[in-house]
Computed example of a mutant assay.
Amino acid sequence: MQICKTPVDLQALKAQNIGFVPTMGALHAGHLSLIERARAENDFVIVSIFVNPTQFGANEDFSTYPHPLEKDLELCAKAGVGAVFTPQADSLYPFKEAISLNPPKDLLGFEADLRPGHFNGVLQVVLKLFNLVRPTKAYFGQKDAQQLLIIQRMVQDLFLPVEIVPCPILRDFDGLALSSRNVYLSPEQRQLALKIPKALNTIHEAYKAGITQGTNLLALGQEILSPLEVQYLSLVNRQLIPLEHIEPNNSLILVAVRVGTTRLLDNLWL
């Protein structure tokens, strides 16, 4: 496995049919599932490990975000990754003022409202990484649903020669969606956080039983989540337009909850 620390190192790689998994490190089984799929569908896999400063707000956890780089590199090597890109911020942002991208207004709201500028930073770094890696396919988890939809739009709008491959949410033994931020949770907070998958499962079961009205489904979820700080629980379509009823194969239940000081995202694709 090659370790590339600079854009020059990365661009020197001679590989075709590249599967790319962009990450911020602190790798878990969810990341490894993306790597496994990338390996199955491509000749060569590149993983990036970079905690991108431009997508963090002033009061967010950039300075405390976990950085277990040696452990991450070991996991990548065991998973059969061909190369890992581990840049420093100044190599990806060589100018004092970087060119920025604005996410499309019709895909804003939710995380964009709660984290102003977040998706500008996401698009900025993802476009840089795509230009450096030149992947055939890039793999993103569906847990960050709004991010996935915005990146798909960027690829379509800018005619980027890469296929975005959405991958299912992977959950821990207790049902909690895997996230690098789960390490912030105390044992007591983790038990509270389990209300999130319970609420989504309850909504899903109600939908399968024939309930399609959004207000009824969301009320079931709110009842379970009520002890927690719910930042949003919403029914939208794949264009993030609010829905009154489930549209099969075009609906999303989005949820963001704060447990202690930790924000957790989850969703249900219907």
Rank of each mutant, 00 (worst) to 15 (best):
K5T: 06
G25R: 09
L27K: 09
H31A: 12
A40K: 15
I46C: 05
P53A: 02
Y65N: 04
P66M: 12
P66D: 04
K71L: 12
D72T: 04
D72H: 05
L75G: 11
A77M: 03
V81D: 09
A83E: 01
A89V: 04
L92K: 06
K96A: 15
I99L: 15
S100R: 13
N102E: 14
L107I: 00
G109L: 01
F110Y: 15
D113M: 02
L114A: 07
R115F: 08
H118L: 03
F119P: 01
V125G: 04
L129R: 13
L132R: 01
Y139N: 05
G141D: 10
D144M: 04
L149Y: 03
I151Y: 03
I151D: 09
R153H: 13
M154K: 01
M154G: 07
D157Y: 05
L158P: 01
F159Y: 13
L160Y: 05
C167W: 06
D172H: 12
D172Y: 03
F173P: 01
F173W: 08
S179C: 08
S180L: 04
V183Y: 07
L185H: 12
E188D: 15
E188P: 02
K195T: 06
I196F: 10
I196L: 09
A199E: 01
N201R: 12
N201W: 02
I203F: 03
A206Q: 11
Y207R: 15
Y207H: 14
I211S: 12
G214D: 00
N216K: 13
L218G: 09
S226N: 14
S226Q: 14
Q231T: 01
Y232A: 09
I241A: 14
P242M: 08
P242T: 07
L243G: 11
E247Y: 08
N249P: 00
V255P: 02
V257T: 00
R258P: 00
V259R: 14
V259M: 11
V259T: 11
T261V: 05
L265Y: 05
L270E: 01
